[in-house]
Deep mutational scan, measured.
Amino acid sequence: DATRCSICQKTGEVLHEVSNGSVVHRLCSDSCFSKFRANK
């Protein structure tokens, strides 16, 4: 199964994995990581 970025939905390489309870968010770049943090 292809890994997909939680923010931009791009498949491919994942730079960050953030687990939040039972959910793991995968983020492909620092910019997506920043957006993820801002959205929480």
Rank of each mutant, 00 (worst) to 15 (best):
D1F: 07
D1M: 14
D1N: 14
A2G: 08
A2F: 15
A2D: 15
A2T: 15
A2N: 15
A2L: 14
A2V: 02
T3H: 11
T3A: 04
T3M: 15
T3I: 11
R4Q: 03
R4C: 12
C5M: 03
C5I: 01
C5R: 00
C5V: 00
C5F: 01
C5W: 00
C5L: 01
S6L: 05
S6D: 05
I7K: 03
I7Y: 14
I7C: 03
I7G: 09
C8R: 01
C8P: 00
C8T: 02
C8K: 00
Q9Y: 12
Q9A: 02
Q9K: 11
Q9S: 09
Q9C: 07
Q9W: 06
K10A: 05
T11Q: 08
T11F: 06
T11L: 09
T11G: 09
T11W: 02
G12Y: 08
G12A: 11
G12Q: 06
E13N: 07
E13S: 07
E13P: 06
E13A: 11
E13W: 01
E13R: 08
E13H: 07
E13T: 09
E13G: 05
V14H: 01
V14D: 06
V14M: 11
V14G: 10
L15Y: 08
L15E: 06
L15M: 14
L15F: 10
L15T: 08
L15P: 11
L15H: 12
H16C: 00
H16P: 02
H16N: 06
H16R: 09
H16M: 02
H16L: 02
H16D: 04
E17Q: 09
E17F: 02
E17K: 10
E17C: 04
E17R: 03
V18C: 07
V18Y: 03
V18T: 08
V18E: 08
V18H: 07
V18W: 06
V18N: 04
S19L: 06
S19I: 09
S19E: 13
S19Q: 13
S19W: 06
S19C: 05
N20C: 03
N20M: 12
N20V: 05
N20R: 09
N20I: 13
N20T: 13
N20H: 11
G21M: 06
G21N: 02
G21T: 04
S22Y: 05
S22A: 09
S22R: 09
V23H: 14
V23E: 14
V23I: 10
V23C: 00
V23W: 01
V23S: 12
V23A: 10
V24Q: 13
V24H: 11
V24P: 08
V24N: 09
V24M: 13
V24G: 06
H25I: 07
H25R: 05
H25E: 15
H25P: 04
H25T: 11
H25C: 01
H25V: 03
R26C: 05
R26I: 08
R26V: 04
R26Q: 14
R26F: 08
R26Y: 04
R26D: 02
L27V: 06
L27R: 04
C28Q: 01
C28A: 02
C28T: 00
C28W: 00
S29E: 05
S29Q: 03
S29D: 04
S29N: 02
S29M: 02
D30S: 04
D30H: 03
D30L: 04
S31E: 14
S31K: 14
S31M: 12
C32F: 00
C32Y: 03
C32W: 00
C32M: 02
C32I: 02
F33I: 10
F33Y: 10
F33S: 12
F33W: 15
F33N: 12
F33D: 12
F33M: 15
F33V: 12
S34T: 14
S34Q: 15
S34C: 01
S34M: 11
S34L: 11
K35D: 13
K35C: 00
F36T: 08
F36L: 13
F36R: 06
R37Q: 14
R37S: 13
R37C: 10
A38L: 06
A38W: 04
A38Q: 10
A38V: 06
A38R: 07
A38G: 12
A38E: 12
N39M: 13
N39S: 12
K40M: 08
K40Q: 15
K40Y: 10
K40A: 11
